[in-house]
Design a protein around this nucleic acid. Structure first.
Lengths: 231, 231
DNA sequence: TGTACATCAGTGAACGCGCGTTCACTGATGTAC
DNA sequence: TGTACATCAGTGAACGCGCGTTCACTGATGTAC
């Protein structure tokens, strides 16, 4: 039996160098990043244990508690981060586009793409159990601050420009959101539905949503853009 | 310390009368029903333990294993049942309706209703982890056998009648499915979104879907029906 | 420049828990004679 | 009608596991003198 500090064959993550005195906060970021990675790799929040996070960072489990109150606190800190990233991705996707209908289309595409690129984070953010939330973590308001308000803004702009039918923006917003969410969620939960099918369905979803929401003028303009390859 | 068989205050579910010799299968149904109930009550598959099921039935944990290979087997037996019930509810919702567009509308409404009435079962069936499936339990084919084929049939009928635009039925089917699934899933996972809002959003979802899929003729006919209060 | 010391990031060992599952068994049921 | 016995539905006790979390601690870091 060898008791060498570096046993061959398996690597117990290299013990991390201890942070300097005022730098305790450095570990916090490393923990967040490791948790994010594990969440994506293991594909299940339940499978991500405090022990596995500690091991991934190269630290012992109790160290986690110096930075997070408990596991829920940690998981939701990761979610908060991811939410911000999603908002950024969505804003980026419509930046530089003027036509509200085109903005709507690109927003939808970016949303689905973000979900498919980060399935496990998307699951935790959007498909989790309502009661698994730390107090004060209000998804609706987070969403309102970030991406949903952007959607509403686009819808209002489109209506004002006579390109979208005049209906209650909140209702239209939820309808659009649930449409892209539905496709994303199905793609994540049912990999039986092959990716090419998902891609074609996405085109249909976008097409259906725009036909369903646009005025005749808006639809005509959008189709012209499309045919011209502008969008 | 009292060791009375019926301690006051708390009731350890009354011990069930043992089944007769050939009747061992009776317990199986009771187990299924208890699991279904617990799933709905506790609102989480993880929270439903073999022990809690055994307790609810009035039996000891090992008894469960006489009827189900393991926990996964049990949970999926419950799901199979629920799938059949959903298919029945959906078929019932469109029975007696002729107009394909009206059938589409009612199918969608019934789908969302079923999900909201059985949130936890819906979650397990439609929002679960793809890898938490017993071998051979193929959701897509189950769905194809049950409800999805009905949806495709309606879409094909509508296209044949010139009421719906001619697009690939499978794509249209997935688009419709994901639209109603999205609303259902959001309503289940995000109770922050109040029920009246969900109801209004459902109207918008239905409206958007039909406008997006119908031909001008189909839309006109549907609006006439609606105005006349036929549907 | 050198040393004593306070700080505090991180450790090692253990806790209690509830879980799924297994095992050898018990004893009511129904049948054969 | 009465009794011995095979069947098999259900039991009681325990297993090993991995988990989140706690506790008293250690020892490198940086500062005060």
């Amino acid at each position: 039996v060898t008791t060498s500090p570096e046993p061959a064959g398996r690597s117990p993550r290299p013990r991390r160098r201890r942070a300097a005195r005022g730098q305790g906060e450095l570990l916090r970021d490393e923990i967040l990043e490791a948790t994010e990675q594990l969440l994506e790799d293991l594909g299940d929040v339940e499978a991500v244990s405090i022990r596995s996070v500690a091991d991934a960072v190269g630290v012992t489990p109790p160290s986690i508690y110096r930075h997070f109150a408990d596991k829920t606190d940690l998981v939701f800190a990761v979610c908060q981060r991811q939410f911000e990233r999603m908002a950024l991705a969505l804003r980026g996707a419509v930046a530089g586009l003027d036509d509200p209908v085109a903005r709507l289309e690109h927003l939808g595409r970016a949303y689905v793409r973000f979900g498919l690129d980060n399935p496990e984070h998307y699951r935790v953010l959007m498909m989790g159990h309502p009661d698994v939330r730390p107090p004060g973590f209000d998804v609706t308001s987070l969403l309102a601050d970030a991406a949903f308000s952007l959607l509403l803004e686009i819808l209002r702009d489109g209506m004002a420009a006579g390109l979208l039918r005049e209906i209650e923006p909140l209702d239209a917003g939820i309808a659009v959101w649930t449409a892209v969410h539905g496709l994303t969620a199905i793609a994540i939960s049912k990999p039986d539905v092959a990716l090419p099918v998902v891609d074609r369905a996405l085109e249909t979803v976008i097409d259906t949503q725009i036909r369903g929401l646009a005025t005749p003028a808006g639809l005509a303009a959008w189709e012209r853009h499309r045919a011209a390859g502008v969008v």
